[in-house]
Design a binder for these strands. Structure first.
Lengths: 223, 223
DNA sequence: TCGTCTATTTATAACGA
DNA sequence: TTCGTTATAAATAGACG
């Protein structure tokens, strides 16, 4: 006689299904018990039967309750964990938003200084509107950067003119920093009484922690 | 090679126990899944593993939660059922206590009437202390019972004397009720104006529902 | 419907890499 | 330890009474 391997699908035949259910439930309970005995572990199983109003449980209703309470506690812990995850997620978002804010402040500051600079260039020397040293320092930095760029372009053009070479890049970097522009900037810094005390230049708009409060004003866009 | 049948007991060897646990847990989960598929039943299993902080569950944490909520509801129903059982238990106790109370009231009433009777027999005819018909009726019943008993004893003694038979029971019942005692009682009842309207005698102290409020006074021991 | 009985499938203990 | 592998035990599908 050939007993074909049973197909793992819903058993349509009612009696066959019930028979299988009873056999397998029994087997399952036995295996539960064995596992618990062999390995000394806590476990429980609940099987709802369409043939009985009461669910089949293992090891016992009380035991099930005991395991369930544990599970519930654990579940709560997991929920707490999840909440923690969400919290850290929000923290990340806050950090990102803060970084964006800092960046925006830097941009605002640059535009502010540029505006002041152009106002002064256009004839109105309203330096009395710059209220503090930080503002003056930032303005000096901006001017220096612009002068540097202008000098670079000038040198580049002069080089092109002397070598009759018409294809030099207008903004090519000069390896030597002791140009007139840099000197001008240092002079400017000294003129307004705010040298760095060395030859190291510092970008006051950078927000990487190197500005110890000196280069940042509390302008209208600063938090 | 002979692989001996495994002893169903705790596996002392750590690695062997762990291996067995993993294998059997896997098998158990598979069987769970198969049973659920074959018979379309709801079930869940929770296995706490000493090798993992999270318990192994089937079919899924969410599925387990679903089954658990059902189980909890059922458990509550059982608790309610238990409470109902306890309630009916308490009802039984109340019923018993009420029966004891009634019995005690009857005894008190009898003693009360007996006391009145002896007071009257000792010369003081203080019938004015008896306030109502019920009291008088009860007193009459008591007197009748006593007279009945006395007459029985008298007849018994007379019979013994006439037949020279010395072993008659003193309180033997007489089949014929039309004795002098009964007649006396009826006369007494008629004297105080309270006949039953028939030849059926009724024990006013009985508490089996036949006393329709006529034979019970609201004495000091009555609830 | 229920338990009992095999043929067969499935699970797994022990072992080895 | 963790995979296979294999011999054996255990489970069980289907038949029968």
């Amino acid at each position: 006689m050939t007993r074909k391997k049973v197909k793992l699908a819903y058993i349509a035949n009612d009696s066959a299904r019930k028979a299988t259910f009873k056999k397998r439930k029994k087997g399952l309970m036995k295996k539960m018990s064995e596992l618990s005995t062999l390995c000394d572990i806590k476990a429980c199983a609940i099987i709802y039967s369409p043939y009985d109003s009461q669910p089949e449980v293992w090891p016992s209703p009380a035991g099930v309750q005991h395991v369930l309470s544990k599970f519930r506690d654990l579940s709560e812990m997991q929920q707490t964990k999840k909440m923690m995850n969400q919290e850290s997620f929000l923290r990340q978002r806050i950090t990102k938003a803060n970084e964006q804010l800092k960046k925006q402040c830097k941009e605002n500051r640059e535009k502010e200084m540029t505006q002041v600079m152009y106002q002064n260039l256009s004839g109105e020397f309203g330096l009395q509107n710059l209220m503090n040293m930080a503002d003056l320092n930032d303005l000096g930095y901006m001017i220096d950067m612009n002068l540097k760029d202008i000098n670079k372009r000038v040198e580049s053009l002069a080089k092109v003119g002397s070598h009759d070479n018409s294809q030099g890049s207008p903004a090519a970097d000069q390896p030597e920093a002791n140009s007139t522009g840099s000197q001008q900037f240092i002079n400017l810094q000294e003129n307004i009484g705010f040298g760095m005390g060395g030859d190291e230049m510092m970008n006051p708009f950078a927000s990487d922690g190197h500005n110890n409060g000196v280069y940042w004003s509390n302008g209208p866009f600063f938090p």
